[in-house]
Every structure is written in C-alpha cells, then in structure tokens.
C-alpha cells in the first residue's frame, strides 16, 4: 500500500480527488484531513494521528479553513522525517500569488483543478505516476 495524505475541506471536491487518486493507482491508501491543522498533526503524529504512517505523497488543497494550506509545506519542509515528501497543491485558484507562494514554500507541483472530472483525473494520474511511480510490472 502506498500512503497518500489528502487535505481537503470540501466534501464534494474531496470525493472527486479520492476517486481520481483511486483511478490513478489502486495501491494508494488515502488518509484524509479536513484542514491545515489536521494535516500538520498527521505529519507530526500528534493525536489523534499518533500511529500515522509517513505518506509517500501529500495532495493539498491550498485554501483550507482554520489553518491555511501553506502551513503544511512550511512544517513538512522543516522536519527531518517529512522534508522529502512530495507535496502537490490541488486548487481551484489560478492566482499567481498563490502559485508563487507555494513554490516558495517548497511545494513540488501546483495543479489547477479542471472543471471536467475527466480532465482532472488525467492530471492526477499524471502527477501520481511521477511522484510514486508506475505499477510495477507483474506486481
């Protein structure tokens, strides 16, 4: 199993993201957090995430309530155990200032969510393959 941490507050959007991830790679096990605070707690294995695994990828909505998505790369990149986890921001905002900020904080990829699901699923498959690899042959 490959652990992927998903941070998304909108249930509908979360549904689409999880569906796209499942479609992209069947080995993926998703862990869902609903805001920046939860995601950071997951990474730091704080309660209730004391048994959380180290995710192979973080799929992060940028405009998260309570604690903003920017907290995730800020924390992840500053801790030895998490600094190497690929982070992909998936958001509806194509504002340049968001792109710039994300890049500055060490986010690996910035994906604007396509309106059509088919397009969105395609882009998820693309970055999943790049960050966690293809299905091993015969595996």
């Amino acid at each position: 199993m490959i652990d992927v941490l998903v941070a998304e507050d909108d249930p509908a959007a979360l549904h689409l993201t999880l569906k796209a991830l499942r479609m992209a790679d069947a080995r993926i096990r998703t862990h869902v957090t609903r805001n920046g605070a939860e995601a950071v707690a997951f990474l730091l294995r704080q309660p209730p995430y004391t048994d959380a695994p180290k995710p192979a990828l973080i799929v992060l909505d940028w405009n998260l309530p309570k604690v903003h998505g920017r907290a995730v790369p800020t924390v992840a990149r500053s801790i030895d155990t998490t600094h190497d986890i690929p982070i992909v921001v998936v958001t509806t905002s194509d504002a340049q200032k968001d792109r710039d900020e994300a890049a500055h904080l060490g986010v690996n990829e910035y994906v604007v969510k396509a309106a059509r699901f088919s397009d969105f699923a395609e882009s998820v498959r693309d970055f999943t393959q790049r960050f966690i690899g293809s299905l091993p042959d015969g595996g």
């Binding site: 689409l16 405009n63 958001t91 509806t92 309106a115 059509r116």
Partner: peptide, 16 residues
C-alpha cells in the same frame, strides 16, 4: 476565483 469556481466545478464534475 476560488469560492465561486469550486462549486461550479463540482456541478460540472458530478454531472459528468
């Protein structure tokens, strides 16, 4: 750019 678009995207995606 974010909050208006997000529900629209949902509408389109789930309709699809």
């Amino acid at each position: 750019s974010h909050d208006l678009q997000a529900p629209l995207r949902n509408i389109i995606s789930f309709s699809e």
